[in-house]
Amino acid sequence: MSKYLLNKFLFTVDRDPELVERYREDPVGTVAWWESSMANSILNCHSGESSTWLAFEPGEREALSSHDYIRLFELGAHPFLTLTLFIALFERDYAEPLAFQKEYGARLARFSLPYPDIST
Rank of each mutant, 00 (worst) to 15 (best):
S2F: 08
Y4D: 03
L5I: 06
L5T: 03
K8I: 02
F11P: 03
V13K: 01
D14F: 06
D14H: 10
R24K: 15
E25L: 14
D26T: 11
P27H: 04
P27L: 02
V28W: 04
A32P: 00
M38I: 05
A39T: 08
N44E: 13
S50P: 00
S50F: 07
S50H: 13
T52E: 15
T52G: 13
W53H: 10
L54H: 04
A55V: 07
F56Y: 03
E57Q: 12
E60T: 12
L64K: 02
D68Q: 09
I70G: 05
L72N: 02
A77E: 05
F80G: 14
L81C: 04
T82V: 12
L85Y: 01
I87A: 06
I87G: 01
I87V: 15
I87P: 01
I87R: 13
A88Q: 13
F90I: 06
F90A: 01
E91N: 09
E91Q: 09
E91S: 11
Y94P: 06
Y94V: 10
E96K: 13
P97Y: 04
A99F: 00
G105S: 13
G105F: 08
F111K: 02
S112K: 12
L113K: 14
L113D: 13
P116M: 05
D117G: 07
I118M: 11
T120H: 15
T120K: 15
